[in-house]
Amino acid sequence: MNLSRLFNSMSLSIPEQHLIELLELNEKTQPFGLTLAPDEIKQLLAERNRVLHSYGRLELGIAATKEIIEVFSESPHIRQDHYASTLNELHEIFYFLKNETEDKIGDAKLIGIMKDCFDNECGGSLELLRSKLEEFAADFRIEAMRDELLREGEDDE
């Protein structure tokens, strides 16, 4: 049973629904001067699917995409002219981080960390954001491994 294929076949009617959900989000992002056109949304969803596939992940629904849009629309560094391309890049970084932090950080928290880093340390640079978050993921894994060893040690006692 090819799981990705099956999931896709189950969701054949869903892209339309996702499109509507994301168009509705424009209402929330409009006050920040940011909106997505239907074609941009289609492209964003296609890019998201590509990224999910390339990172070997499956997603139920588009909750993470919506969260990324809502949270990042408040950033002072994002402008309408590069809004769609920034969102594409943020998806790439987000799913990369999900894998690299071994799914140990929930979506909302991870997106919060990304936003904080993007706005402050990186001054809106996506390149810098990727490199900072790579470091973050490496540190996180070391810390997680240390915790695990400590827990195992406690279990043995």
Binding site: L3, L52, R57, D103
Partner: peptide, 9 residues
């Protein structure tokens, strides 16, 4: 807490 998982999971 997460809407996606790895294909392996």
């Amino acid at each position: 807490k997460s809407s996606s998982v790895t294909t392996e999971t």
